[in-house]
Each structure stands twice: as C-alpha cells, then as structure tokens.
Simulated assay, not measured.
Amino acid sequence: MRVSRAEARERNRRALLDAALQVVSRDGYRAKLEEIAERADLTTGAIYSLFGSKNGLVVALVTDYLRPHYEEIEQAVPAGLELLEAVDAFARHYRRSCDAPHALAGLTLQITLQHMTLHDPQLRTQLAAAIREHEEHLTGLFTGRPHNGSIVTPHQAQRLATALRALFVGLSQGVVLGLADEADEQYFSDAACALASDASRLVRQPGPVPRDR
C-alpha cells in the first residue's frame, strides 16, 4: 500500500517526537539532534524540515505532551457544574494523574525543560508561549460558571487557572517524589477550593497599578 506524502510526513514527525522525548528527558540542553535523528531512523535534515530548529522540536514536544493532558481535564470536568464543583473535579483528576505509570517520566521531563530554559532565554520565551496557549483550555473550562451569585468572567478564569496550575504542579511534584504522603484527592480538592473560594481576592477584575511613592 502506497503511503501518501502527508502520511509519511506525520509518521516522521511522530518518530522524531518519540525519540526526542527519550533523549531530551535524559540529556536536557545537551541533547544532540544527531542522536534524536538516529533513534528515529531519520536525518537531522528531517528535524529542520519538520520543526525548523532544535528549539522548534522541543516546543513541539511540549505541545504534544500537554495536548492529551488538557483533553483529559476537559473530560473530567463536565459542563453544568458550579465553579467550586468544577475545581473539585479538576483537583481530584490531577491527583489521580500523580499515580499514573508515566507520572515519574512526566516529572523528569518537566524538570529537564526547566533546566533547559535556564540556558536558553529564547527557548524560555517559546515554551512560555506554548504553555500559555494550552492554559487557555483551563480558562475556558472555568469561564461562565456560577460562583457566589455571579458568573466567572474570562479574566477571572484566567487568574484562577494560573493559580491552580501552580498549586497542582507543586503538589504533584511532592507526591511523585514521595514528599507529600498525606496529599490525597481530598487534600488536593480542599487546597484548590480554598484557593478558589475567595473570589473577592483571587478573581478580582484588574485595577490601576499603584505607583511607587
């Protein structure tokens, strides 16, 4: 059966992303394009053709890794829930993901990428943009939900999504590393709901920035 050019391109792209996950997770910013290409049974020219650069490959790797994560979150938090109910569902789903077989590998990649951005400001900017794009899924997840007699606005949802992501990343690292034995689903839920409940502080609308005196 003849493979189309588009199918071959996608197959090569997938092979390079799988190889990059292994090499980048192990070597970080020292990862060599030659080894990634060799593992994928391709050439470095294929990397430049498909991703433009080493940074382009890393950003695509992060996007590829995050996409199913956010798709699972959207499925775990159904429409029709009030804000705190949605936050509870999100928290419990995040805690369950800490026990998944790939949790340690995910943490390894996360720490490795943080280390890489310390050595490459351009990559840091590119990764930040990619992560913000995916965080918009969380913003959409909370926007429009009832809370304390009002409806959560997009700006409020964005502030909440940023805070919750930071909370869960920190807690999940503790769980995976064995440093937070008591952080079960209820703990994740209680912490997240406490963070989200005081809407007057956490999700207030932007105001003027105070000037230094």
Results as ranks from 00 to 15, higher is better:
residue 5 R to W: 00
residue 7 E to C: 07
residue 8 A to M: 14
residue 9 R to W: 03
residue 21 L to E: 15
residue 24 V to L: 14
residue 26 R to A: 14
residue 31 A to R: 06
residue 32 K to R: 15
residue 32 K to C: 00
residue 34 E to K: 15
residue 37 A to P: 10
residue 39 R to F: 05
residue 39 R to H: 06
residue 42 L to M: 08
residue 43 T to Y: 04
residue 45 G to M: 09
residue 45 G to S: 07
residue 46 A to N: 14
residue 48 Y to P: 01
residue 49 S to K: 15
residue 51 F to I: 09
residue 54 K to M: 06
residue 55 N to S: 07
residue 63 T to A: 13
residue 63 T to S: 12
residue 63 T to Y: 00
residue 66 L to T: 07
residue 68 P to I: 11
residue 68 P to G: 11
residue 70 Y to T: 05
residue 70 Y to C: 03
residue 70 Y to N: 03
residue 72 E to A: 15
residue 74 E to C: 04
residue 79 A to N: 12
residue 79 A to F: 10
residue 82 E to G: 14
residue 84 L to V: 02
residue 84 L to C: 03
residue 89 A to N: 02
residue 89 A to P: 01
residue 90 F to K: 11
residue 91 A to P: 04
residue 91 A to D: 02
residue 100 A to N: 02
residue 101 P to M: 11
residue 103 A to I: 09
residue 104 L to M: 11
residue 107 L to Q: 08
residue 108 T to M: 06
residue 109 L to P: 02
residue 112 T to I: 00
residue 116 M to E: 05
residue 117 T to M: 12
residue 120 D to V: 10
residue 120 D to G: 04
residue 125 T to H: 15
residue 125 T to C: 08
residue 126 Q to I: 01
residue 130 A to T: 11
residue 131 I to R: 15
residue 133 E to C: 14
residue 134 H to I: 00
residue 138 L to D: 04
residue 138 L to A: 10
residue 139 T to C: 13
residue 139 T to F: 03
residue 140 G to R: 14
residue 140 G to N: 11
residue 141 L to A: 13
residue 142 F to W: 08
residue 147 H to I: 09
residue 152 V to I: 10
residue 152 V to H: 00
residue 157 A to R: 04
residue 161 A to F: 04
residue 162 T to G: 00
residue 162 T to Q: 12
residue 163 A to Y: 06
residue 164 L to D: 06
residue 164 L to M: 10
residue 171 L to M: 13
residue 172 S to Y: 03
residue 173 Q to W: 05
residue 176 V to Q: 04
residue 179 L to W: 12
residue 179 L to T: 14
residue 180 A to L: 12
residue 180 A to I: 07
residue 189 S to K: 06
residue 190 D to I: 09
residue 190 D to K: 11
residue 191 A to R: 10
residue 192 A to W: 01
residue 192 A to M: 02
residue 194 A to I: 03
residue 194 A to F: 06
residue 196 A to H: 02
residue 196 A to V: 03
residue 198 D to W: 07
residue 198 D to T: 09
residue 199 A to W: 01
residue 201 R to M: 00
residue 202 L to R: 02
residue 203 V to K: 00
residue 206 P to Q: 02
residue 206 P to A: 02
residue 211 R to F: 05
residue 212 D to N: 03
